[in-house]
Amino acid sequence: MDEQDYTLFEDYLLKALSETEKEAFETRLSTDPAFKQRFNTYKELSAFLEHTFENEAASTDFKNNLKAISSKHFKKQQATKKGIQFKPWQYAMAASIALLIGITLFNKLSHPVYADYANYDSISLTVRGNEDGLLKTAENAFNKKDFAKAEVAFKELLLTDEKNSELQFYRGVTNIELNNFAMADWLLKGLKDGHSVYKTKATYYLALSKLKQKQYDAAVEILKTIPDEAEEHKLAQKLIKKLD
């Protein structure tokens, strides 16, 4: 294949050919099938590359989100399936995990931890006199710190009330508690970038989520975006100081 043909393909796609060159090119396309086929592949590849590189960041985000949701779903499935029988090597593994937890706890002493800064109060989602079943379940479960149950209820509630920022916020907190960080961060980031009354609260908790994930730099960056007049500002500053 002539190198010049590829230069021609590119110029044609970039609309950089003169009127006569363009006509000659199109005539060749309609009379030379091999030329046309090559051009079609070239065009397809050009579109593929353009999309792949432009969409790289979004695509990575999607895959991470997908992976997190997928493993959550399959874990849940297996958990409900059968009781667990331990084999000897699993005891060894359990022992090393226990050791690891010990080490982690020890490490925690040197860093501020999530639990010290998460100080949400009991919530009240139901309007007096209106005891909506599912809302009540969510509220009770959350207040009793039964987060697994709260999560199920929030999820269900949000299916019919997708844009409810209060539900989104508490589902976000619930997911931090459950260590479902992908879901927590996604919800809280949505609120942080939005304009609801939960905007700064969500920003603060997004930072706490990062703290719990030990992404200290990310936590600081997020905390810095909390404005001076916000209720959470003082706490945020305190945490930044500890983290620095």
């Binding site: 590829y6 230069t7 590119e10 110029d11 070239y42 590849l45």
Partner: peptide, 17 residues
């Protein structure tokens, strides 16, 4: 750069075909 780009996509076209 522009010529090189077309040649690289050209090379890819050949590999694929």
């Amino acid at each position: 750069a522009r010529k090189k780009k077309s040649l690289c996509i050209g090379k890819l076209t050949e590999l694929v075909r």
